[in-house]
Each structure stands twice: as C-alpha cells, then as structure tokens.
Design a protein around this nucleic acid. Structure first.
Lengths: 109, 109
DNA sequence: ATATTGTATCGTAATATAGCGATATTACAT
DNA sequence: ATGTAATATCGCTATATTACGATACAATAT
C-alpha cells in the first residue's frame, strides 16, 4: 500500500535505513560537506552555497538535526550549525559494522 | 517542485546519495543481510524470509542490482542472487572516505 | 503439448519526499 | 515602538517510493 513496513524488519535494519536516509539526498550530503568546512555555519550561507532556497535548506537541516547529527547554537538572531562529532563517529561505526559483518558472512562460504 | 535538483550538486554528493539510497529502506537492508547469510539465494526464499510479497522483493532486488551490488545467475528457472564482493568493498570505501574526510575537516578547526 | 515453478513486469493506490513562496517568529538595532 | 535580519513553519504542487495483485515469461518436468 505504499507505506514502508517497518514493523516486519529488525531494529537494526530500521536503524541503518534511518541513518542512510540522511545521506540519501545530495543536498544533505552537500550540507554536511559544507558544515564540515566552515564549522559553525548560518542557514543562509549554506543556502547560498548549495543553491537551494532558504526554506528548503532549513528543512534539510531539520532532518539532519532530528537524527542527532547536527548541533546548533543561537548567537543573537543567527543560528550556527555544526556537526556533532560523537554522533558522527557513532554513525560511521554503525555503517562500518554493517559492511564488515556482511563481508565476514560472505567469506565463510 | 518536488524533484531532487541533482544538477546543482557535485558528482560526489550525487554518488554518495545514490548509494545511500540503497540502504535507506529496511527491506533492502534485510535482503542484503539475508543474502550475506545464504550466498546464492532465490527471490522466493528471500521473499519468505523478509515477509514481503514476491513482486515487492523482486523490485528491491532490481534496485540493489542496478547499483551493481548484486550478482545473479540463472540455474534453470531459478535465479541465484549473491553480493558482489568487489563492489561491496568499493561501497564501503566510499562511505569510509566521506566519514573520514568530514572528520578531518572538523578537527582542523 | 501441457503443467508447473520461479521471476519479472504492469497497473494501481497510498504515502513520502523535495522544492518553493508566503508568512510567522525571534532578536537585535535604531 | 519600529525596522531589519535570520530562521522556521505553513500550504501547496510535483515527483518518487513502497507495496501488492494480476499477469506475462521462461525453463524444466511430465
């Protein structure tokens, strides 16, 4: 019926899918790349850099933030975004484990 | 307008997004996990295992295959799917580089 | 030739996603 | 108090994705 059937899959499969979803849009990849560069970026600057409107950029930022990968801090009226290094490390570990686990199962055969 | 604007982003950002898309659905993650286990699986078996219909499973298999991550081989009427180890390694490398690159930029600041 | 079996494809419906303009909200400045 | 600037949210449209039943296709078996 067009809705992803989350409940039939394992927690792990859902978790990996949720995190992969963050990177499944090139605008979000570009945002993460840019924030890595400037460390403490404004939405407006990001918006200009990646050439998407401010509302669209803001929405992508929310998606990444909801997943815990972004930190943000108000300084006056401006909001400075940066990557949460701990979460980033954690995310990397999750993918790494998945890749390695799959490989180890292959080589057993 | 609801269409991802691929052309405004870098090749690299698009490439990462395309590959992340493979893992952005728990059914596909589950399929990859299962194929890793059995090495040479039938669509039907996978379908039963992940509890999605045969057509749905077949579609997901095509998505993963189109990205080059699956190999398949007919033996009579049956089609045996397995993971392309080289491509898997390559995929892992791409994600690894992205994570590391982002981290290195963060630590410079 | 016909039946059976395993896959793929078609058609369709429902939900999700991506994008933007308009508007609201918030904080600082004057 | 009013204006300005940065961000977030609302409302909308168009496209993409997910899922399934029905059906077509291909290879073996009878």
């Amino acid at each position: 019926m067009g809705v992803t059937k989350r409940h039939i899959h394992s927690m792990r499969a859902n978790q990996i899918a949720d995190l992969a979803k963050i990177l499944s849009n090139p605008a979000r990849v570009a945002i993460i790349e840019y924030i890595g560069d400037c460390d403490g970026c404004l939405c407006q600057d990001i918006s200009e850099k990646i050439r998407l409107s401010q509302p669209t950029t803001s929405q992508h930022l929310q998606v990444i933030k909801r997943a815990g990968v972004l930190k943000s801090q108000f300084k006056g009226k401006a909001q400075y975004y940066s990557i949460d290094a701990r979460k980033w490390e954690q995310l990397q570990g999750l993918f790494y484990d998945f890749f390695e686990h799959t490989k180890s199962k292959m080589s057993e055969k």
